[in-house]
Simulated assay, not measured.
Amino acid sequence: MDTTLLQNRDYTLIIAKTTLDEANKPPGFAERWNAAQGAIVSLAQACEAHDPDGITLYVSCLDPQESCQFKKYEHVTSDRLTQLIQENIPPHQINLREVLELALEDYFARKTAGTTKLNGEIMIVLLDGEPSDRMAVARAIKTATQKMEVNEELGIGFVQIGEDLLAKGFLTALDDHLQSVGAKFDIVHTKSLDTISPDSLMAFLMDTLFD
């Protein structure tokens, strides 16, 4: 496949990190994001290589002053990524639909204004569990596909942190059945982070557009 389609494109990274009360944490829960930190930075660097003005970053946060569960940062470089993740306290549950709709609405608003890059955008969502609003997430993606003109203008990659079986089932359904519920294009690709090796990052980004 033509990897030039990864160039001249915007990249958005959504960090959907959650936390649990100490009494309810399964073994290894607290360590899984720390263990994944290097791989997440490598993924951000792969995006940054094609988006030299910096990626857009949404990070989950538990902040009553915020109207959304996520903080948005623009023009982020990979060397700032770890700091921005660590300075935000994650919530117990994620409203993934809300942040995904914000990111998608932002893309289509920029497209209407003629300020998107020529090849479109790739969004990468890193999550550690099943979202509480899984059906709403699927509907948001389905609605977004109706606004698209060609399949490769927009891709959404979901990357699972950890081994939550409910999250795995949700992501598999998104990957395999999106068009069967009325989506115009299949724009979702899902992977477990521990299966994305440093030398397969470009393949993962391409699969987000075409798989």
Results as ranks from 00 to 15, higher is better:
101 E>W: 01
63 D>H: 02
133 D>P: 13
26 P>T: 03
143 T>H: 14
100 L>R: 10
130 E>P: 01
191 K>H: 14
140 A>T: 11
23 A>H: 04
180 S>I: 01
39 A>S: 14
129 G>A: 08
83 Q>E: 10
60 S>H: 00
210 F>E: 14
74 E>I: 02
38 G>Q: 12
50 H>G: 04
161 I>G: 00
53 D>V: 05
54 G>I: 02
92 H>K: 08
21 D>N: 10
201 L>C: 05
179 Q>G: 11
167 A>V: 00
76 V>C: 07
98 E>L: 08
40 I>Q: 08
48 E>H: 07
34 N>Q: 13
186 D>M: 07
144 A>V: 02
6 L>R: 07
64 P>T: 13
209 L>K: 15
25 K>R: 15
38 G>I: 02
13 L>D: 06
88 N>G: 05
146 Q>R: 14
174 L>V: 10
32 R>P: 00
64 P>G: 05
151 N>R: 13
86 Q>T: 05
29 F>W: 14
90 P>M: 06
24 N>G: 05
147 K>T: 04
68 C>P: 02
104 L>A: 05
127 L>R: 01
128 D>G: 03
92 H>R: 12
183 A>D: 07
136 A>P: 10
120 G>K: 10
93 Q>A: 08
150 V>D: 14
70 F>V: 03
184 K>M: 08
178 L>P: 10
47 C>R: 02
63 D>F: 02
131 P>M: 11
184 K>T: 06
71 K>Y: 07
59 V>D: 03
134 R>K: 13
99 V>E: 06
207 D>W: 12
5 L>H: 14
89 I>D: 00
126 L>C: 14
200 S>P: 03
187 I>A: 06
64 P>E: 08
92 H>S: 04
89 I>N: 01
195 T>L: 06
144 A>R: 13
113 A>Q: 14
97 R>H: 12
18 T>P: 03
68 C>R: 10
56 T>E: 09
72 K>R: 07
73 Y>K: 05
142 K>I: 03
162 G>A: 07
7 Q>N: 13
6 L>C: 02
127 L>N: 03
210 F>H: 15
53 D>W: 00
57 L>G: 09
5 L>G: 05
87 E>W: 06
145 T>M: 11
208 T>C: 11
19 T>C: 08
159 V>Y: 11
39 A>E: 15
123 M>W: 04
188 V>M: 10
8 N>K: 09
182 G>P: 07
130 E>T: 01
10 D>M: 06
125 V>M: 04
162 G>I: 01
58 Y>A: 05
165 L>I: 05
205 L>W: 12
61 C>F: 00
58 Y>K: 00
160 Q>W: 15
107 Y>S: 13
110 R>Q: 12
149 E>Y: 02
75 H>R: 09
36 A>I: 05
124 I>F: 06
75 H>W: 01
36 A>T: 08
142 K>V: 02
154 L>Y: 06
141 I>E: 06
95 N>V: 08
121 E>H: 08
147 K>V: 00
192 S>Q: 11
137 V>C: 13
208 T>Q: 12
192 S>H: 12
87 E>P: 03
88 N>E: 12
